[in-house]
Simulated scan of single mutants.
Amino acid sequence: MIPLDTLMLFIVTTFVIVLSPGPAAITVTAEAASNGFKRSTLIIAGIAAANVVFFGLSATGISALIIASSTLFSIIKWIGVLYLLYLGFGAIFSNAGPLSISASNKGRAAIHKTFLRGFILELSNSKALLYFSALLPQFIDISRPIAPQLITLCLITVLLDLFCYSLYAYLGYKSLRMSIKPFIIKWINRTTGCMLVFAGLKMATVEK
Rank of each mutant, 00 (worst) to 15 (best):
I120D: 03
A103V: 07
L87T: 15
K113G: 14
W78D: 02
A110W: 06
K127G: 11
I76D: 00
F93Y: 14
Y83S: 08
I120K: 05
S69R: 02
S70R: 01
I101G: 08
L129Y: 10
I66D: 05
S100P: 11
S70W: 03
I92A: 10
N105M: 10
L123H: 09
G97C: 08
L84D: 07
G90Y: 11
Y86K: 14
R117I: 02
F115M: 07
Y131A: 08
F93I: 11
L82K: 11
G107A: 07
T71N: 02
S69L: 03
A128C: 06
L72R: 04
L82T: 11
H112Q: 09
S104H: 15
R108D: 10
S102H: 15
I66Y: 11
A110I: 06
A68C: 08
I67Q: 07
I66F: 01
F119E: 00
Y83Q: 10
S70N: 07
L84H: 09
A96E: 14
S69E: 10
S70A: 03
F119D: 01
W78K: 04
S74M: 00
F119V: 09
I75G: 00
I120N: 07
S124D: 01
T71P: 00
S70T: 07
L87M: 13
Y131G: 15
R117G: 06
I76W: 00
K77N: 01
V81W: 07
L129N: 04
S69I: 04
I111K: 10
L130V: 08
I111G: 08
I66C: 08
L123Y: 09
A91P: 08
G97Q: 11
R108Y: 09
R117S: 14
G90F: 03
A68N: 04
N125E: 13
I92T: 04
L121S: 09
N105E: 15
A110G: 12
Y83E: 10
F119A: 05
K127C: 05
Y131M: 11
H112I: 15
A96C: 04
S69A: 01
R108W: 13
A128G: 14
W78Q: 00
A91I: 05
N125T: 04
L82C: 12
F89L: 06
L85F: 06
S104T: 14
I75P: 00
F73D: 00
A103N: 15
L87N: 06
P98N: 11
F115R: 05
S126E: 05
A110Q: 14
S69T: 10
L116Y: 12
S124Y: 03
I76H: 02
T71M: 01
S126K: 04
R108S: 06
H112D: 02
G118S: 09
I111W: 12
F93N: 08
G80W: 07
S74W: 01
I79S: 01
A91N: 14
S102P: 11
P98R: 13
A68Q: 03
T114Y: 09
L121R: 09
H112S: 10
G97T: 14
P98G: 06
I75M: 00
G90L: 11
Y83K: 14
